[in-house]
Amino acid sequence: MSGLLCALESPSPVGLIRASGQLSFTTSVELRAVLHKALAEQPEGIAVDVSGLSVDDDLALTVFSGFASSAADWSACPVVLFAPNPAIAEALDRLAINRTVPVYRSQAAARAAISEAPPVRRYRRRLSATSAAAAIARELVAEACQAWAQPDLVDDAEIVVTELVANGVRHAGGDLRLAVTRGRRFLHLSVRDGSPVVPVAKLPDPDGGQGGRGLILIDALAASWGSTPTSDGKVVWATLRLR
């Protein structure tokens, strides 16, 4: 057994995670995966219950500050902790983690802080898996870029979102959920679908197959991209650096 239990108990509007047991550099990988799963649900904020957490090395707690920085860059999603025991609270203060990840006494206080934070800047659209989906996605991306004073990003963002949507239409079927989010340093594009199959970038097939070619284009244009499992499938996402 790993000694760490962590689970996403409520995905939205606030992602509630409960973490208990022994946090170490090894088990922090599990915690980070749950944190990213919560972020993929596109919440208004993420609150982590650390009341049952202990550490064998205080530096393992930097998993929270590292994740909070990523969440801010990608989507400006606030991340907070609540109900630490005295030893954890002291370590969070000594390592200055509480300067970037606010810490509260209770879940109610954590939720209140998230509700008072500036709202996440995000455009959403549900898309039918049809040939028209990509054009609708491009329109939404262009609208978002113009609203956020990022006109130079429109062309690349439209190409990337076209490939994300096309991948979902081709492989997942069913409705897609598109989100365009402005973070601190990046524009974050994501398409959620009902298939758990992880996309893989592939070189062009000499026999004419198309699968995976669009992901190579995304890889060339995006600062980063990837896939995160969700409760009902996955989110395929890409980030582009703001200009």
Rank of each mutant, 00 (worst) to 15 (best):
F64S: 07
G66I: 09
D58G: 13
F25A: 08
Q22D: 09
A68I: 11
E41H: 15
E44Q: 15
V80S: 10
D56S: 10
G52S: 04
V48K: 04
L35D: 05
Q22K: 11
P43D: 05
P78Y: 14
R32V: 04
G52K: 05
A40W: 13
G52A: 05
S75E: 10
V80N: 11
V50W: 02
S54K: 05
L31C: 13
I46Y: 09
L61F: 06
A68G: 10
L59E: 09
V29K: 11
P86K: 03
V79A: 00
A60Q: 02
V48I: 15
V29L: 12
A38N: 07
A47M: 11
L81I: 02
W74P: 03
L39N: 06
A71I: 07
T27K: 07
A76V: 06
I46V: 15
H36W: 02
R32Q: 12
V55S: 01
D58P: 05
V80I: 11
V48T: 10
E30H: 14
L61K: 03
S70C: 06
D49C: 04
A60C: 05
V50S: 03
A68Q: 12
D56I: 06
S24N: 01
F67K: 07
V48S: 03
S69P: 00
A76Y: 10
A33M: 01
A38P: 08
F82A: 00
W74I: 08
V34Q: 03
S28P: 00
L31A: 14
H36E: 06
A47W: 11
S51R: 12
D73V: 03
V48G: 06
F64V: 10
S54E: 09
T27L: 09
R32L: 12
T26K: 04
F64L: 08
S51C: 10
L39E: 10
V34N: 02
V50L: 05
A60L: 03
F64K: 05
S20W: 04
A38W: 08
K37L: 08
Q22R: 14
L35N: 07
S20T: 13
G45D: 08
V55Y: 06
P86L: 06
A68W: 10
E30G: 11
C77I: 09
A76R: 14
S65Q: 12
T62H: 14
E41M: 15
A76G: 13
W74H: 14
S54A: 09
K37M: 13
G66K: 11
A83K: 00
D56K: 05
C77S: 07
F25T: 03
V29R: 14
L23Y: 09
P43M: 04
S51L: 08
L39T: 04
R32P: 02
S20R: 15
L81Q: 07
S24I: 01
G45Y: 07
Q42L: 12
D73F: 07
L39F: 07
S69R: 09
A38H: 06
S51D: 13
D58W: 05
E44T: 14
L23R: 08
F67Y: 13
L59W: 08
A60K: 01
V55N: 00
T62K: 13
S65G: 12
V50Y: 01
S69V: 04
L59F: 13
V55M: 00
A40N: 11
E44D: 15
S28L: 01
F64M: 07
S70G: 02
A40P: 15
A71Q: 06
S51T: 12
V34D: 02
F67I: 12
V50A: 03
A76P: 05
Q22A: 10
D56P: 01
F82R: 00
